[in-house]
Simulated scan of single mutants.
Amino acid sequence: MNIQKVGFIGLGMMGAPMCARIAGAGHTLYVADADPARVEEICGKLSAAPLTEAAAKDLDVLTTMLPNSSIVESVLLDEGWADRLTPGALVIDMSSSEPVRSRELAETLAGRGLHYLDAPVSGGVKRAENGTLAILVGGEQAEMDAARPLLETMGQSILFIGPAGSGHAAKALNNLVSACGLMITVEALHVAKRFGIAEDVMTDVLNASSGRSNTSENKVKQFMLSGTFGSGFSLKLMDKDLSIAGKLAESVGYTLSFGAYGIDTWHRVAEGVSPTTDHTEMYRLLSEDAQ
């Protein structure tokens, strides 16, 4: 498959810079979003055109970057975008969707003569902008190989995980580890502060020692201690991913222990914040003073 014409549905904080990478690589790009003004804005900035029914028939790939499985299924099946594609076209869901539902969607699309990959991303807005995302791919190896040049416009690490749904499963589990690691890092900082160790010093200790993590290296000083809380990934979106991880564990008959506590804690905190609250605000929200 020679991928030239690409459709992209979902122009949010991640979708827009990902589209910029695709257009910048020379692909013919058609975009769609629930907000028509957003489509107009992106088309004005990039070499892109609105996605129409006529354009869909000629697409090599239709990509979705949407909030959840229900919206992905609604767009592809209920709104009919899958039916507008020509058999043989490839659908790539780069959303953070539910693995079991992704596997079912792959079967549904196969019945319509369409190929499917789930390819969620990790790395945040900045890495979307510079094309260095990690992309976790589930599906058939042949489709993965065909899509690799397109995926490499957006990501630096393209990892083939396994059958359909595996990418979404890996993304949820990665975020479970990330979220629980963030919480324990924050708690260690608060204990250190109460004992009289400056939090920036404790962060240096972690980064020079075995407690080092993505949180300690890339989030604590940059977004937590600075008070900017501007990583670009919301607390509620992380909560959604943790729900997916919890359901995944249940579906395979594994009982989480530490993970279950982390998920429950994140749920509790998420209930009291706005949709725009950055996930690094856990530093503030988990402090004993804030509870």
Rank of each mutant, 00 (worst) to 15 (best):
S157C: 09
G230T: 10
E143K: 02
A170K: 02
S97N: 15
R268Y: 04
V31D: 01
E250S: 13
A48N: 10
A169T: 09
R284T: 11
P67Q: 13
L85S: 07
S216C: 11
G139D: 01
S96Y: 10
V269M: 06
R284E: 10
V137A: 00
Y116S: 05
N130K: 10
L256S: 15
N175D: 12
L225E: 01
T64W: 01
R103S: 13
S95M: 13
G113C: 06
G131V: 09
A32Y: 12
L256M: 15
L46Y: 08
D241N: 14
A32N: 13
T28Y: 03
E129L: 08
Q291Y: 11
M154N: 07
V39I: 15
L242E: 01
N68T: 11
F160T: 10
K57Y: 02
V273Q: 07
V205K: 10
L77C: 13
A245P: 03
K5I: 11
L11H: 06
L114W: 08
R21K: 11
I9N: 06
D58E: 14
H27T: 00
G12I: 11
G253E: 02
L114Q: 07
K45A: 13
A146T: 07
V61D: 05
L85R: 09
A55K: 02
T280Q: 04
V269W: 07
R212L: 13
A270T: 01
N174R: 09
V91M: 05
S243P: 02
